[in-house]
Write a protein that binds this DNA or RNA. Structure first.
Length: 411
RNA sequence: GGAGGAGUCGCAUAGUGGCCUAGUGCAGCGGUUUACUAAACCGCCAUAUCGCAAGAUAUCGCGAGUUCAAAUCUCGCCUCCUCCGCCA
């Protein structure tokens, strides 16, 4: 949500930045509603002031008269207030100035590349084949039990996942991140406040209609609202969390896409970073989080590139977003493995999360970024480090966590 | 799931229809005093909106209602506590 004052002062800018994101909004209509709301609000306030005076002096006749007037205006004021709020909620967070204006993901920019695409002296197997051969991924049986886009992770696959989780934790905890395992069911209201219910965003979520709960699509959804309706102290910022939780996605509208394997699934575990920082510090924090993500994939020695999203690919709440894409040999493509965004104070306005300064209170700025969204780094490891016989060499940095240095077909 | 109790300005508490523009204590902030610390004393000390300002309005878990007037009465919901049931 944007500050209404900002919209009053920069209507064209707001209209344009929404258009840059491909979101149609009616800023003129919003400002009209705002004007009308303030007009009625003033009238109501004056009537209430009179009523309070009348009540104090026990002027019952006058009070009755004012009650009639108020009964007429108050419902109207409430109606306008709700309408204004709804309209405010439809305005996306504007992209930062350094973000390229573009229509969709085809206009994103590669800003850095690490390593060279892996080459093989043999025909590499894809992760589905490797998963079967090594007996660590079972998609067929999961389909029988849960339907498409689910999988069982087994044997050393499980230990590999836990190694990634522990590696992330051991790296992030010394950086001041608070480890946390959040609830994965959140209220619809919470999801709305995060800015993911607008513009069809709710189509990608699993929902429990009866209980009015939503399954989180990332730990961010359960961690970013942790300080809802709180005023933090300035000294405790930046406050950083590293969460570990399952993530659930319906993947509606992606039926034809990535149907093979575990690249795109309905449920996966994820290690996620969330930062709460002071106003003006989100740019530095954004680079910091991106730096950590790059460090992970460098240390794993997985070839990758860093992509900066254009306005059309940012989503509703983000003001800037970088993805890391890892090289997937059998697809001969870089595929997304992490994503890090600043949502500035867009979510904290909706969530009412502030911090106290000497002058008063300010909204915090919130950032979120992936450490590991488990299926995908496993795909990257399997495919990039496979040998001719199907054996997969475990990256050095993970070996102290896995306890083994390779996964072989015989195992 | 059933029965009972409770939710007040950071914390603790007072407040059962108009004297509440919510009192008091603690904590916090500023000052006086002091070699320093402490104590004592004095002052400040919720948020949002509108307004140049003076000020006004709203908020006592949330929402609706009764009333000229609601923290206070009524109804619904949420959360917490106690007990019963069920249960990893």
């Amino acid at each position: 949500m944007l500050d209404i004052k900002y919209i009053q002062e920069n209507p064209e800018k707001v209209q344009q930045s929404a258009a840059d994101k491909g979101v149609a909004v009616d800023v003129g209509g919003l400002l009209d509603t705002d004007r009308e709301y303030r007009e009625i609000s003033t009238q109501v306030q004056n009537l209430r002031a009179e009523r309070n005076v009348a009540a104090k002096s026990r002027d019952i006749e006058k009070g009755k008269e004012l009650k009639v007037k108020l009964d007429e205006l108050e419902p109207r004021l409430k109606e306008l207030e709700e309408k204004l709020q709804e309209m405010l909620w439809t305005i996306p967070n504007p992209a930062k100035d350094d973000v390229k204006i573009g229509k969709d993901d085809t206009e994103n920019e590669v800003i850095r590349t690490y390593g060279e695409p892996t080459t093989f002296s043999f025909k590499p197997r894809d992760h589905v084949e490797l998963g079967q051969l090594l007996d660590i991924i079972d998609i067929e049986r999961a389909t029988k039990v849960s339907g498409s886009r689910f999988y069982y992770l087994k044997n050393q696959g499980v230990l590999l996942e836990q190694a990634l989780v522990r590696y992330a934790m051991d790296t992030l905890i010394p950086e001041g991140f608070i480890p946390i395992i959040p609830p994965v069911l959140i209220t619809e209201d919470t999801m709305k406040r995060l800015g993911y219910m607008e513009h069809g965003g709710d189509e990608d979520m699993f929902r429990l209609e009866k209980d009015k709960l939503v399954l989180v699509a990332t730990a961010e959804h359960a961690i970013a609202p942790i300080h809802k309706d709180e005023v933090l102290s300035e000294e405790e910022l930046p406050k950083r969390y590293v969460g570990y939780s399952p993530s659930f996605r319906r993947e509606a509208g992606s039926y034809g896409k990535d149907t093979r394997g575990i690249l795109r699934v309905h449920q996966f575990n994820k290690v996620e970073m969330v930062s709460f920082v002071k106003q003006g510090e989100d740019d530095t924090e954004h680079e910091f989080l991106l730096g950590l993500e790059e460090k992970f994939f460098q240390e794993l020695n997985i070839p990758h590139q860093v992509v900066k999203m254009c306005t059309g690919d940012l989503g509703f709440p983000a003001a800037r977003k970088y993805d890391i894409e890892a090289w997937i040999p059998t697809q001969e493509k870089y595929r997304e493995v992490t994503s890090v965004s600043t949502v500035t104070d867009f979510q904290s306005r909706r969530l009412n999360t502030k911090y106290r300064t000497k002058e008063g209170t300010e909204y915090v700025q919130i950032l979120n970024g992936t450490a590991f969204s488990i299926g995908r780094p496993i795909i990257a490891i399997l495919e990039n480090f496979q040998q001719e016989d199907g054996t997969v060499i475990i990256p050095e940095i993970l070996r102290k966590y896995t306890g083994f240095d390779k996964i072989s077909p015989s195992a």
